[in-house]
């Protein structure tokens, strides 16, 4: 009896901790979203998301943050596409051609784990170094290079996890049909296709929210970049600059910008979930 009581007590304590962390996380999330909504919603209007900053925007006069919204979407969109085009083949090569038993594969996976954890300011510094070397100024291109480097490890590791979920026997029967490794890779990509979108959206989420990587490399501009070698505004930096202002109007707009960024990320997360549940239903 005593033993049973002790076990039930430890169960209660463990459950208590789980509830506590659950409540903490949920409460913080509501607090964050609540703050942004409370402070930013009054300043969020059509002008804000549809216009470029005009003279005096940063002292509270007319204009919007269209430059930052589009800048961020360009940057994150292109960088994500590039990292998918580079990252997915890397993962396929390691898993299908070299095989999980190969030392090169094991070493590379360790490497990508490390890269995954490297803070983005380091990528920013590296990107900045590359730009200086090639004589590129702070520009959309510089930002794209840096953010692509930043998101490649995310794509590689996520696709890696997806490939692990493919049963060994599916590979065996596919090879038994006389397929080449490349044809096998295509079958495998098909069987994880919904998961692939998740990986890409995950990378996009990281790319669009990154500040440190773009701080040194992308610059900032009140105009839309016409060419890839021009500086571009990004939402995280727009938030940063406006928040540093002493003018309440501008600070309010910083929260409104944060709200826009959060909504973009929310859309991404919701899309990811819908795709994931579709994948599960199909299985």
């Amino acid at each position: 009896m005593d033993n049973t009581k002790r076990r039930l007590l430890s169960e209660k304590i463990a459950k208590g901790f789980m509830h506590l962390s659950g409540i903490t996380v949920t409460a913080s999330l509501f607090f964050i979203v609540g703050t942004i909504l409370y402070k930013g919603l009054p300043y969020l209007n059509w002008e804000m998301v549809s216009q470029l900053p005009k003279g005096g925007f940063y002292i509270g006069k007319e204009g919007g943050i269209l430059n930052a919204i589009l800048g961020s979407l360009y940057l994150a969109g292109v960088a994500t596409a590039l990292s998918a085009f580079i990252g997915i083949p890397i993962s396929l090569y390691l898993n299908i051609y070299l095989g999980t038993n190969s030392r090169v594969t094991q070493f590379s996976k360790l490497l990508f784990d490390v890269l995954y954890g490297v803070p983005s300011i380091v990528y920013g510094a590296v990107g900045f170094g590359i730009m200086v070397y090639f004589g590129i100024r702070a520009s959309l291109l510089g930002g794209i290079i840096t953010v692509t480097l930043l998101t490649i490890p995310i794509v590689v590791r996520t696709v890696d996890e997806l490939i692990k979920t493919i049963p060994e026997d599916l590979k065996n029967v596919t090879l038994s049909l006389g397929t080449t490794r490349w044809e096998l890779a295509k079958v495998m990509l098909r069987s994880i296709r919904a998961g692939l979108l998740t990986a890409i959206l995950l990378a996009f989420g990281r790319a669009i929210g990154d500040v440190a990587g773009v701080l040194l490399t992308t610059g900032f501009s009140d105009n839309l970049p016409k060419y890839i070698d021009e500086p571009a505004a990004t939402l995280p930096l727009a938030i940063f600059f406006q928040l540093s202002s002493p003018i309440p109007e501008v600070q309010g707009r910083a929260y409104a910008s944060a709200l826009v960024l959060t909504i973009i990320i929310l859309i991404i997360v919701v899309c990811t979930h819908i795709l994931q549940s579709k994948q599960k239903n199909r299985r």
Binding site: P167, D169, L170, N172, V173, S176, V187, R190, R193
Partner: peptide, 11 residues
């Protein structure tokens, strides 16, 4: 031709 333990149809 290989017939595996469990059926694995291609996706």
């Amino acid at each position: 031709g290989l017939l595996s333990q469990k059926p694995y149809p291609l996706p």
